[in-house]
């Protein structure tokens, strides 16, 4: 069944196919507003004198790692770059217009700090044979996203599990 995949897709498996650069530097104001929304009072996000005991300086909430490569909703000089471009590329090539995230796995290696510049790349790890689900017919796939800081150090890695389908 794997042979039924278009060559355009099989050649993507295991290879980096899209890269994103940070449209903004990591900002304390953004992560503190996020912490406010979820009522997270951990001082490593808020209080410099407490944070230095652990992380040398304040750090961003880890849950925000993937968000630092999200593009602006609107930009004066260019079109918006979609997040998870590889996912949208798969949907288009396979003619599966609908897609949902079924599972997220994320590992955190290096704390993210104010002023960091995060970039990422996307790699197709696996794609299943055609499946029939309650939502429709489609395929499951897993995309690995690796995140780097401005020193090219890997700061985290995320595996996103998707179902692409049509009704």
């Amino acid at each position: 069944m794997q042979a039924e995949l278009p060559k355009e897709i099989t050649k993507l498996i295991g290879k980096i196919s899209f890269e994103d650069s940070s449209p903004i530097l990591v900002q304390k104001g953004l992560w503190q507003n996020f912490c406010s929304a979820i009522e997270d009072s951990n001082p490593i996000y808020w209080n410099e004198s407490e944070a230095i005991k652990h992380t040398d300086e304040l750090i961003a909430h880890p849950a925000l790692l993937p968000s630092w490569v999200h593009d602006f909703e609107w930009h004066p000089n260019r079109k918006k770059v979609l997040p998870m471009q590889l996912h949208f590329h798969l949907k288009e090539v396979l003619n599966l217009p609908l897609g949902i995230v079924t599972e997220v796995e994320i590992e955190y290696y290096e704390p993210i700090k104010n002023g960091d510049e995060i970039s990422s790349n996307q790699k197709l790890l696996s794609i299943t044979d055609p499946v029939t689900t309650k939502l429709g017919n489609g395929r499951y796939w897993v995309i690995e996203v690796t995140y780097f800081n401005q020193k090219e150090i890997i700061v985290g890695k995320q595996n996103m599990h998707f179902l692409g389908y049509k009704k």
């Binding site: 996020f34 912490c35 929304a37 979820i38 009522e39 997270d40 951990n42 001082p43 490593i44 407490e50 005991k53 652990h54 909430h61 880890p62 849950a63 925000l64 993937p66 968000s67 995230v101 079924t102 599972e103 997220v104 796995e105 994320i106 590992e107 955190y108």
Partner: peptide, 30 residues
């Protein structure tokens, strides 16, 4: 969204085990 849910998951653990708790991995299904 995923990030907010993940934020609450991490908050649950750090609230219980202290400010210095370092999260290594989170996986979740909605």
């Amino acid at each position: 969204n995923n990030y907010t849910l993940n934020g609450l998951v991490i908050k649950y653990v750090t609230d219980l085990y202290g400010d210095a708790t370092r999260i290594g991995k989170v996986s979740f299904k909605i």
